[in-house]
């Protein structure tokens, strides 16, 4: 569980030391990208903990989900419908579900260890 945390900190540090700023008009896309990444991270952790992790599924899931979210945002922009909300809701639900599973898994493990 240490590596993802290190990765997150590394990413933050890298970004802090570079004058990175996205163009204002892409802010919505970045937001949905962050959600996709979060979803992917929790999904990955859940799969890892359940021993069902597959790197191909993980990477393709990350890329396709992000691309789909971005596409939805573009289409929503063109149609004047906030389709991005759909993606946001979907990602949020998945994140909650995954975090819920992870939580239960960790609790189980922790209680098992504590019982031993």
């Amino acid at each position: 569980m240490i590596l993802p945390a290190i990765g997150l900190i590394a990413g933050i540090v890298i970004a802090l030391f570079t004058p990175l700023r996205f163009p204002t008009e892409y802010s919505q896309y970045i937001a949905i990208g962050i959600l996709a990444a979060l979803d992917c991270v929790f999904g990955g952790i859940r799969a890892g903990l359940q021993n069902t992790f597959d790197k191909n599924v993980f990477i393709s899931g990350f890329l396709v989900n992000t691309a789909l979210a971005a596409t939805l945002t573009v289409v929503g922009d063109k149609l004047g419908v906030d389709l991005v909300l759909g993606a946001t809701v979907a990602f949020s639900i998945r994140i909650f579900t995954n975090v819920g599973i992870i939580r239960r898994y960790i609790l189980d493990k922790w209680f098992k260890n504590a019982c031993k």
């Binding site: 590596l3 993802p4 962050i34 890892g48 790197k55 990477i59």
Partner: peptide
């Protein structure tokens, strides 16, 4: 487990960069 952590860490790096960039934006 290490392998999945590696991949997740990779995505986490991207996540971190995106987060900081977005906050700045």
């Amino acid at each position: 487990a290490r392998v999945f952590e590696l991949y997740v860490a990779g995505v986490c790096v991207i996540l971190g960069i995106l987060l900081v960039g977005q906050v700045r934006t």
